[in-house]
Design a binder for these strands. Structure first.
Lengths: 140, 140
DNA sequence: TTAGCTGCAAAAGGTTTGCAAATTA
DNA sequence: TAATTTGCAAACCTTTTGCAGCTAA
């Protein structure tokens, strides 16, 4: 369970500045569930701080990603979703209803090994989502 | 190895019309390698038929997808890539240099089984790409 | 003080859409 | 002829960027 102060400390450690937008954005991520888009985040943040611009949200998310405290995932279509990098995991998204499910990050360990030895490819399994159909949306 | 006529027949069977843009686009896909973006395709097509518009390419690709003769894949960032649906396969893309590698479509069979039984999720493994780093781009 | 941020406005990249004219069956 | 499809222009959505002013250290 990540705390705001831990993240701020990390920013300072790495020579970054602790600014109002950064503090507020991280706070919003702590408050939000998983799978927040930049736009979601901007809306949450702007409820209290209307002048924090969407482009600032993107820039902060970038910085926080470089600092290793935030990650994003590309679902098939649609915008990327962001979350704190406190517990690595993969995402599975339903291509029909858009539901996103979290699954253990070691799900692809076997595949990663095969790819490494057969194709020389180092998998980055938390950076993309598996796509398919959830129980509700699958056939009959 | 798919032939132009097979695809055209399929369009007719399904009640679609065989138009110049559709014929030319399919032909371009047969000529192109794998991993063509809509934009690539428009450029190829426009070399001979300058008035086939990019939006027509998108619309034809949509139709052809519904007819089951074309598929597309979302690489992490960047545009989707299209190919004929003649031999199902997965894609692995390097997040650094963008290189795309084709891998067997049964690579995720084990994962698909686990997801089906544990989460009730039916994987659609050819609709997204695995992301990571190719040998050249992986560390030193 | 000054390097590093932010707000704003504008653009860029990929894709979709409305509509009238052209084309297929 | 009637229903689809196309060309074009314009919109859309997500993300990025240039720049002048602001702010944390």
């Amino acid at each position: 369970m990540t705390r705001l102060e831990d993240v701020l400390d990390r920013i300072r450690e790495r020579g970054g500045r602790v600014t109002v937008p950064r503090r507020v954005i991280i706070d919003a991520m702590l408050g939000a569930g998983e799978h927040v888009t930049a736009d979601d985040l901007a809306a949450r943040v702007q409820a209290e701080h209307p002048d924090i611009h969407l482009s600032t949200v993107y820039r902060c998310l970038d910085t926080l990603t470089e600092l290793g405290v935030v990650t994003h995932v590309h679902l098939g279509h649609g915008p990327a979703v962001y979350h704190l990098a406190d517990h690595p995991h993969m995402h599975v998204v339903c291509e029909s209803c858009g539901e996103v499910v979290e699954v253990p990050d070691d799900l692809l360990d076997g595949v990663a090994r095969r790819l490494a030895s057969e194709v020389g490819f180092t998998l980055d399994p938390t950076h993309f989502a598996l796509v398919g159909r959830c129980r509700r949306c699958a056939a009959p």
